[in-house]
Design a protein around this nucleic acid. Structure first.
Lengths: 144, 144
DNA sequence: TCCGTAACGGCAAATCACTGCAACAACGGT
DNA sequence: ACCGTTGTTGCAGTGATTTGCCGTTACGGA
């Protein structure tokens, strides 16, 4: 809803141009509460602006990701995006069986990431870390 | 070096057939100390067996991954593989700047994964978890 | 308001990973 | 050693994402 105004400022202040295509993509991603697939962004964008190219969608989403405006989640073998809320960061747990996504507070990763930094000097990129695995439901289904 | 004999046994005992293509792929991956890209496996395999198809390489690598013979590492946007040593499992930390790969004992993830299981019933797939981020070198380079 | 220029978007082609299908070959049984 | 069954391969095609090229456009400065 908001935060997308500030995103425009961030684009502008870093010398990026504000184009109708970029505004569309921002609107669409910001108008969603959850994550949205690149192809879905595309079809919605075309409603506003018939000649948008899918490549533009991808380029824009990558740009917004670099700027920290959106985060990327890999679901199955597709990329999904969602608005990054600076005050409510979270990571994702994606079930490899049913593709269900659960969110996870970064607190769970704090200790782990601190150890990596202390011992290896490696700074993990938690904003783009997705944990794969099996959710409770699918886990018990395969155990049966 | 070894471990690849046992892999053959594992294939055979699960009803998979031993084909020259599969042996080539195994030889190639086993002959490497580190990780190797799918395309690289392909070009090496063609030297032994001119008409191997890239699709076969992918299928074989996926099969070996399912059997736990090799592990997959995403580097940049390409898939790399390496021989999984049952007694020396490890995860990978890949630098998003220079694509350097460091290995990481799974001990570091134990506590974290246990919390996920206890609190969410989510079983993370640590065998296929790669941590992205910046290595010490690239981190200090961008801080300058 | 108009201009110049550097960034951007559209288009097409490339890349990487994966899949469907028909021909082929490994291997347990005879 | 030969056969038939059934898993595998090669080939061609598909889906998702990325890149190169070139004409177009946003936007700071005159």
């Amino acid at each position: 809803m908001l935060g997308h105004e500030s995103a425009i400022g961030r684009l502008r202040s870093q010398g990026y141009r504000i184009t109708p295509q970029r505004l569309s993509v921002l609107d669409i991603v910001a108008g969603r509460s959850g994550h949205i697939g690149a192809d879905e962004v595309w079809s919605l964008a075309k409603q506003q602006h018939p000649y948008v190219d899918l490549a533009t969608i991808y380029r824009t989403l990558q740009l917004l990701k670099r700027l920290g405006v959106v985060t990327e989640v890999v679901i199955g073998n597709k990329l999904h995006f969602e608005l990054a809320d600076k005050d409510n960061r979270h990571n994702h747990m994606v079930c490899s069986v049913c593709d269900t996504v659960q969110t996870l507070s970064p607190d769970y990763l704090d200790e782990f990431s601190q150890r990596l930094e202390q011992e290896f000097g490696f700074t993990p990129d938690l904003d783009n870390l997705t944990i794969g695995g099996k959710c409770a439901k699918c886990q018990s289904a395969t155990t049966e």
